[in-house]
């Protein structure tokens, strides 16, 4: 438990402690004035109004909050917004090219690679960045490298089928 008296002196939510942060999300610049303890996930969802990125655990254990930051997949719940000032961030809203779906998104629909859809944005962002990392080639490697993204509905085989199909087509 916190010392009760110390909190009185902290002007917790006023803007006196807020920090200016610029996030380049999906090619749009978002100017934020956030407290230093606001996670990148909450900044994206609550301040940026981009709710495609999901909160499943807020502890880095489920992968639902995965976004692509400066080309790498990161867990936005374990990242503070202030750490990513001036970073290039791609969320699920930035994966399609306008109305035209990314081929992995199409593959997800074709393979029925989701049920409730809540882990889906994280799975898709994670898979795209994973393939860029170039560490996964075989199905087993893809499964291993995607294992930070949980799916509770049990769409696992369909998710991996969709990723493999996209990967194989990409390599053709």
């Amino acid at each position: 438990m916190q010392d009760k008296n110390s909190s009185n002196t902290t002007n917790f939510s006023s803007n006196s402690n807020a920090t200016k942060v610029q996030l380049h999300i999906n090619k749009t610049t978002l100017h934020l004035h956030v407290m230093p303890w606001v996670s990148l996930l909450d900044a994206i969802r609550d301040h940026g109004k981009l709710t495609g990125t999901k909160k499943g655990c807020d502890h880095g254990q489920c992968g639902a909050c995965t976004v692509i930051c400066d080309g790498k997949r990161i867990l936005s719940c374990l990242t503070l917004a202030v750490m990513k000032d001036c970073s290039e961030i791609t969320t699920i809203e930035g994966i399609a090219n306008g109305e035209v779906l990314h081929p992995l998104q199409t593959a997800f629909i074709e393979h029925d690679a989701f049920q409730c859809g809540y882990c889906t944005p994280g799975q898709i962002c994670s898979a795209i960045a994973m393939l860029e990392e170039g560490k996964a080639d075989t199905r087993d490697e893809v499964k291993e490298q995607m294992s930070g993204n949980l799916c509770r509905c049990g769409a696992n085989t369909n998710i991996i089928d969709a990723i493999m199909e996209f990967k194989d087509k990409r390599n053709e």
Binding site: R45, K49, L50, T51, G52, T53, K54, K55, T91, I92, E93, I95, A96, L101, Q105, F108, I109, E110, D112, F114, G117, Y118, T120, P121, I124
Partner: peptide, 21 residues
């Protein structure tokens, strides 16, 4: 038939209970 809400789910446009602005 593919899931009719598939487009909304793969683009992040599907809104869940805590996501209404």
């Amino acid at each position: 038939v593919n899931r009719l809400e598939g487009y909304l789910k793969v683009t992040g446009a599907a809104k869940y209970a805590g996501e209404y602005d």
